[in-house]
Design a protein around this nucleic acid. Structure first.
Length: 288
DNA sequence: AGGCATGTTACAGG
DNA sequence: ACCTGTAACATGCC
């Protein structure tokens, strides 16, 4: 489900709901996610308190007061659902049922103080939950090679220019590369390239300098807008209350093959091709 | 039936 | 040691 905006939406609601709460109990109906959960280690987190919830790239980081940080990655279909334990707080039983350990694909359920439940649900099990010493968090193999956050000041013209010249990969592959820029995925790369009127097969070392500035500002723009709209829901994504995002309504190219280009005065048709095994969408006229 | 899916990484080869 | 391409992971949907 999750690229940077979706993960940010989840992080924000976690921050609102579980900060300062204490973990009371952890139930693990299925340990076999992308990495097997060490149940004993995980249960040692019981009785500790959540100090903060952060995001780096597509990773959610739950910082506890016991010097450990829980890292959650949602893979393709991971969801975090927050509910209370009292069924009558819910208009329908839907959210309540989602916190039931017998529901399909619920893999971990964490009970907090104030009767708050956090459920990790993941159909394809590409996601994972791991624990690190907070002190060494940035050294672990998931985080230590990541490029800058696209919404940070580090992701700027000079950084882009410096790194773009020494390679000649497809621009799309460069933007998908988490070592170059962290947090973009297939949807937002397609959309940002469209907004910048660049062909996804343009070679990274041939992008005009003018286009670099444009691309950087479009990447930031599309991510901010997507966060504001609660992320994109195609099939799987919803926020911690089970609610869909809206940004899919603003897609210009993703999944739009065969449609007329949304840009006014453009009569192009959205094409679908594959770059590095990933679906790629672009307008055949304004992204020549 | 077969192809495709918002992601990451292990591995082989250069 | 770095870069690149491919396959694999597990499940559901069209």
């Amino acid at each position: 489900m999750p690229e940077l905006p979706e993960v940010e939406v989840v992080k924000k609601s976690l921050k609102r709901t579980i900060c300062n709460l204490t973990i009371k109990n952890i139930d693990i109906p299925n340990k076999f996610l992308r990495y097997k959960i060490d149940e004993k280690f995980m249960k040692k987190m019981v009785k500790s308190k959540v100090l903060s919830v952060l995001r780096r790239s597509k990773y959610i980081l739950i910082n506890l007061n016991n010097n450990y940080t829980i890292m959650v990655h949602l893979g393709m279909t991971g969801k975090i659902i927050i509910t209370g334990t009292n069924k009558k707080n819910y208009k329908t039983s839907f959210y309540y049922e989602l916190s039931n350990s017998k529901i399909a694909h619920n893999h971990l359920i964490m009970k907090f103080s104030k009767n708050i439940l956090l459920t990790y649900n993941d159909v394809r099990k590409f996601g994972f939950i791991k624990i690190f010493k907070t002190k060494n968090l940035h050294l672990n193999s998931h985080l230590n090679k990541l490029g800058p956050e696209p919404l940070s000041k580090k992701f700027n013209f000079n950084y882009f220019k410096k790194n773009v010249k020494k390679r000649k990969v497809y621009l799309k592959d460069l933007l998908m590369n988490q070592k170059f820029i962290a947090g973009l995925g297939n949807i937002y790369v397609n959309e940002a390239i469209f907004l910048s009127k660049i062909n996804p097969k343009a070679r990274s070392n041939e992008i005009p300098l003018k286009k670099i500035s444009l691309l950087i500002s479009n990447i930031k723009k599309v991510l901010k807008k997507a966060i504001m709209e609660g992320g994109s829901s195609i099939k799987d994504f919803n926020n911690t209350k089970g609610k869909n995002g809206n940004f899919q309504q603003f897609f210009n190219v993703y999944g739009k093959q065969g449609s007329t280009c949304s840009r006014s005065n453009c009569i192009g048709t959205i094409q679908r091709i594959w770059i590095s095994k990933r679906s790629t969408f672009f307008c055949d006229i304004c992204q020549k």
